[in-house]
């Protein structure tokens, strides 16, 4: 608590001007607009299949990263901190690049191998079931 009091004079007055309500509301509208755009794309795809799904997924991921950027930079105010602090949080997060690529490609590889060597599983996963048929365990608990 004492350290907070000591830090206050420097940290506090220096960036007072950067809490600009105009920028906050602009960020809010950007985030809302991106969300509405994503929703519109998802519904349009649902109704018309206007784009291949993997291209649409790429669009969604870019939109998500854009939203994340605005939240971190403006709402969490990281864009207004000094470079040392930005780097000390941003650089460890680069691990996510490896994390996502390694694990998702591992999943894809597993599917490929299983489809190749477990023909029974492949056949099962290609056989449609009737819509009305309920999963045996899908009943509500307590309802007979």
């Amino acid at each position: 608590m004492d350290s907070a009091a000591i830090a206050t004079p420097q940290t506090h007055h220096a960036d007072k001007h950067s809490f600009d309500t105009r920028i906050i509301w602009r960020t809010f509208w950007i985030l809302t607009a991106i969300t509405i755009f994503e929703l519109a794309m998802a519904i349009l795809y649902y109704e018309t299949d206007f784009l291949p799904k993997h291209i649409l997924n790429g669009v969604f991921l870019i939109m998500t990263l854009a939203k994340a950027f605005f939240i971190i930079a403006e709402f969490m105010h990281l864009g207004h901190e000094i470079k040392n602090l930005v780097m000390t949080t941003a650089i460890p997060c680069l691990l996510f690049l490896w994390f996502v690529i390694a694990f998702v490609s591992d999943g894809a590889s597993f599917r490929h191998l299983r489809n190749q060597y477990d023909r029974y599983e492949l056949e099962q996963s290609k056989t449609p079931v009737h819509k009305t048929e309920q999963h045996p365990e899908a009943k509500k608990p307590g309802v007979e």
């Binding site: 994390f99 996502v100 694990f103 894809a108």
Partner: peptide, 11 residues
């Protein structure tokens, strides 16, 4: 990411 991995491994 574990969700993503499992989803990628499903047909």
């Amino acid at each position: 990411i574990s969700y993503g991995t499992i989803r990628m491994s499903s047909n």
